[in-house]
């Protein structure tokens, strides 16, 4: 009984995670510049992976698999923001973003010369 419920919950999580992954992919494709794209690559993508992992955990239910799934989740949470920050920073410094889409840019006002016109 409980196994059946867990299976169905797991299946639901897998579908939801896959849909979020799809939305993230569409976002990466459709958003106008690199900075916006990184938003799609972090939030829905991370939650999608978390849901997929939860779904797998509910289906497999063995301690060894749960440990591995936990590791994947921790590393995903720890590394996705770092990767997005590195790409975002590189995009900003090389000027690969649409300034017309920005309402404000307080990083440029810092005046340290590391803006788009700064040293590569």
């Amino acid at each position: 009984m409980i196994a059946t419920i867990a299976d169905w919950l797991g299946a639901g999580c897998l579908v939801a995670g896959a849909l979020l992954g799809l939305a993230a992919a569409i976002g990466v494709l459709r958003f106008p510049d690199a900075l916006s794209r990184m938003h799609a690559a972090t939030k829905p993508q991370v939650l999608g992976v978390m849901l997929l992992l939860l779904g797998i955990a509910l289906r497999l239910r063995s301690p060894a698999d749960l440990g591995m799934i936990l590791l994947v989740a921790v590393f995903q949470l720890a590394t996705a923001p770092v990767a997005a920050q590195m790409i975002g920073r590189a995009a900003y410094r090389s000027g690969r973003f649409d300034r017309g889409l920005l309402d404000a840019d307080e990083l440029a006002e810092r005046g340290s010369g590391s803006g788009p016109a700064g040293p590569a």
Binding site: A23, A24, I26, G27, R30, F31, P32, L35, S36, A40, P44, Y92, L101, L102, D103, A104, D105, E106, L107, A108, E109, R110
Partner: peptide, 14 residues
């Protein structure tokens, strides 16, 4: 992301 024809604006804040 899936909303048709929507271009989100952004901003950089400190």
């Amino acid at each position: 992301a899936v909303q048709p024809g929507y271009r989100p604006r952004g901003a950089i804040v400190a």
